[in-house]
Design a protein around this nucleic acid. Structure first.
Lengths: 331, 331
DNA sequence: AAAAAAATTTAAAACGATTACATTATTTTG
DNA sequence: CAAAATAATGTAATCGTTTTAAATTTTTTT
């Protein structure tokens, strides 16, 4: 059994209060005492039990990050950014991933309810607004990477509409007029906004929006392949395609290659997110970059401020995206 | 401020002990009382504070998973497996990723030392044996996916030597005799074993091992490209390449494609891990599958047993790998 | 109906820290 | 030099639970 603050106190010949003061860097303790205590702490390799500490302080200095997959490289960037700020501020970050299951998903929040963590950041979530709003009344919660409609919660995202607009405009400027859209369906807010941006770009360049060129299923990567097959079956297929995620773009390209097309020359493809693999694909994938690390930093900084002041910041904050051109869109 | 067990007790007209018993499913409580208490719990939407509970019980039922990147799809499989078992057993899993930094890395263990978690699983770690052994004397720690030399700790891995042997043998059987190895260097145990397996396969098929065909750097993906450039510069380049990770294989293939080679026809490439993207690459990547989910289940099951019985299981357990053939190795 | 046994319930003591308040030792000040 | 101010330390309450041991109530047995 590991030693407690009492053991340290006894061995150092002081009271537990003094030990606690030394360990918490309290100024009102004589230098000699400090030394003596620290020596004993070292000798006994004492580690304070945070259950005791946290119970008394009524805080844990831990933030939970809930992501619906930890595989996504953008998510890991979010976390890197969050961690940087959190550590600076004396907080730790832990994470857990969800898999779309009502019962399990609720369980993810239990650490918030039972006070194991001080706050939660949701990455790319699909919880409903009602659910989130209710929680956010009494706990500190924030969203990053994906907004939720009507959720009145601190949210940090890119301007999806503008980003999609820029991406499609870029394809148009390369001379394309028949541009396909591969999207995840209207249930995701980001997809809705990206579709709007897509349409706006076409409109502004006097290109009629052909609904046949919109392939809308889910984010499941295999839908990239299906999208290609579908487009190929059209009498007048698109010469460029904008996919709302790099994974969809990846499988789209894969299928295009199998069908004998050379992506970048025969057809242009643009993704979204700028995941690590974009550069590894052949051809490398043009995409829209989200400043994930910075987004993570921002959201964490705001959340910690909220926790400390016990305020509830409901800001909807957008951060700048960037179009990254690689081989998949040709020259 | 949220309500406590005291508030519930008062409102239900019973003692806190009774409330606690109801909440913990203790049998010695009258049915009527149970109902009454549960009703109040519901009304007040009471959530027990786990800091209090955990302090008293001296356990948290949380396991921490430390991975050095959460981007790797195999890691996410490990976690899926671990989570399955953990949940069954009433444990929760949280995770954190490390980034090779002495100071930070130690900090990852603090949750173990300060009793915030009951145990730790390390995924693909590079901590040193001394460090781990010392910790494992007093805390519950396990390794999965990568062993550490001389670490006397519960470890769950595949038989890397045999796996590499099988992979290379497969290339040999496809008629290759000049087979390159792209490895991460001898500091990683898995790389050492895989190199041994590579050599053994050559040897058993009477192919002389040409040290020029071994490219040994780090796991950094860009070394795949460098490996290709290096091999291409040889007077007699390999016709097949075995890479110790899919990421190395991916960048190798990418570079080969850029150089005008058609992977699968002009050169065969075999990876290791079977990450999600293997199927998305063009051509799709042949590889060695690790039963990551099952490995996760096994390690978690053993670890929890250890925690409960306060034993320290030092088993080194290997699980079956599988060669997956796709396009990158041709027909 | 009383005694014994069983079933509930409660009061109070943990768990391991922090911290308000009390006390003692040391300086400073008039 | 005594009184006041300050610094250092100790005592004990507290955080929100669980759980032991004791007390109470209910049920069963005689």
């Amino acid at each position: 059994m590991s030693s407690t603050i009492k053991d340290v106190a006894k061995r150092a010949g002081v009271s537990v209060a003094t030990v606690s003061r030394v360990l918490n860097g309290n100024s009102n303790v004589a230098e000699a005492t400090t030394k003596k205590v620290l020596k004993v702490v070292e000798e006994m390799s004492y580690n304070p039990n945070f259950l005791g500490r946290n119970l008394r302080k009524r805080e844990t200095n831990i933030i939970l990050v809930i992501a619906h997959s930890c595989e996504h490289s953008m998510y890991s960037q979010f976390i890197t950014g969050m961690e940087k700020v959190a550590w600076q501020e004396g907080y730790d970050i832990i994470s857990t991933s969800v898999n779309y299951n009502e019962r399990d998903d609720l369980r993810r929040f239990s650490m918030l309810f039972n006070r194991t963590v001080d706050g939660v950041v949701l990455i790319g979530t699909h919880y409903k607004a009602d659910f989130l709003n209710k929680i956010a009344d009494s706990y500190h919660v924030a969203l990053v990477g994906e907004a939720v409609e009507d959720a009145n919660i601190l949210t940090v995202v890119v301007d999806d509409k503008q980003a999609a607009y820029d991406a499609v405009k870029c394809l148009i400027e390369k001379g394309h007029t028949r541009i396909g859209l591969v999207t995840g369906g209207d249930w995701a807010l980001s997809c809705r906004y990206r579709k709007e941006g897509y349409k706006k770009a076409l409109e502004e360049h006097n290109i009629e929006c052909d609904e046949d060129l919109i392939f809308s299923r889910t984010y499941d990567p295999k839908n990239g392949e299906l999208a290609f097959d579908y487009f190929k079956s059209l009498p007048n297929p698109p010469t460029a395609v904008f996919c709302v995620s790099d994974l969809l773009a990846a499988t789209f390209m894969k299928r295009a290659g199998q069908a004998g097309l050379q992506v970048g020359r025969d057809i242009a493809v643009m993704g979204f997110d700028n995941i690590t693999f974009c550069e590894m694909f052949s051809p490398s994938l043009s995409t829209v970059n989200q400043p994930a690390k910075e987004m993570g930093q921002y959201v964490m900084s705001e959340l910690i401020t909220d926790i400390r002041t016990n305020k509830f910041n409901r800001e909807y904050h957008t951060m700048p995206h960037k179009i990254i051109l690689r081989e998949s869109t040709g020259d």
